[in-house]
């Protein structure tokens, strides 16, 4: 009986999500929909079509996908490197301003990206003026967008990795120092392998954040050259012309495909991470 109630509650709570995704899938293959029912031009049930998916032959969407991918991967690398190095230092070293830095990052994390958009715009414009590398990290560049997103993710990343390093015994590190390793080597060869589950979780969060990023890329890019998937999607919705919602659904679906594939292959690892153990190693 208790079991039934539990299942009943679960089914009830996931129904809205299931309905939503069902509509998404049905809509992408339909001429138009009414509720969850596909309709053809005459209003009868039916109207199966692949025309909503014709965008896959359009170079622009592949460009958007590439941009999404580049932003996400750059973020994973940037956040991973800075968080593991910073988290280790904050966990293990005593230095002036350590406490202020820790509380500072927490406070910064509380600022929403929206509040910073205008200030960041000036920073990016200035960065864009730097010779040679400016065009890679300035306004309207994939690098610039990634840089801003990395900065926004770092407080979470550093705190997360610091927590993982805090849980490691000092003795292992001392043993390595006595065995002849330098500080850097201790971090790279001994400590980093112990926090792999944490780094994997952080990389995943970061990748998803980068892949789905909308506000920052939308604000700091112009046109379609560096637009990523969410920005591309938003450009399909127009104020002045009727929106083809079935097309929007198909593009949204398309954006989800890499994530779905990724989830299928890493399900087991993810469960380990979310279960919170380092048992996965």
């Amino acid at each position: 009986m208790g079991r039934r109630i539990a299942y009943g509650f679960l089914i009830l709570s996931v129904t809205p999500i299931l309905v939503g995704y069902s509509w998404l899938v049905i809509a992408t293959f339909s001429f138009r929909t009414e509720g969850l029912l596909p309709r053809n031009a005459e209003g009868g049930i039916g109207g199966f079509t692949l025309s909503n998916w014709s965008f896959v032959t359009d170079a622009a969407i592949w460009n958007a996908m590439l941009n999404s991918f580049l932003i996400a991967v750059t973020m994973v690398i940037g956040v991973g490197v800075a968080s593991t190095a910073g988290g280790y230092a904050l966990s293990r070293f005593k230095f002036a301003g350590r406490k202020a830095f820790l509380t500072g990052t927490l406070v910064l994390h509380a600022f929403k990206a929206e509040m910073l958009l205008i200030a960041i715009f000036f920073v990016l414009r200035w960065l864009g003026g730097i010779p040679v590398i400016g065009s890679f990290i300035g306004f309207n560049s994939v690098g610039g967008v990634a840089l801003v997103m990395i900065a926004l993710e770092l407080p979470l990343g550093i705190w997360l990795m610091k927590g993982f390093f805090d849980n490691l015994p000092w003795d292992m590190e001392r043993a390595a120092l006595i065995d002849g390793a330098s500080r850097f080597r201790v971090w790279w060869q001994i400590m980093l392998p112990q926090v792999r589950p944490g780094l994997a979780a952080l990389s995943l969060f970061t990748f998803i954040a980068g892949w789905n990023a909308y506000l920052v890329p939308f604000t700091f890019t112009i046109g379609t050259k560096v637009a990523n998937m969410p920005v591309f999607l938003s450009q399909l919705i127009s104020d002045t012309a009727p929106t083809n919602w079935n097309l929007v659904a198909a593009v949204g679906m398309f954006q989800m495909i890499p994530l779905i594939i990724f989830f299928i292959f890493t399900q087991e690892l993810l469960l380990n991470i979310y279960a919170g153990g380092s048992k996965g190693t």
Binding site: D171, M172, D179, P193, Q194
Partner: peptide, 28 residues
């Protein structure tokens, strides 16, 4: 520490869990 010519044994063993026994002993 590495230049003092010392070897140390810890209560927690302080072995490197991601290496094999050979990896641990051969590390120095």
């Amino acid at each position: 520490p590495k230049d003092r010519g010392i070897g140390m044994v810890f209560q927690s063993y302080a072995l490197y869990p991601h290496m094999t026994v050979f990896g641990n002993i051969s590390y120095p």
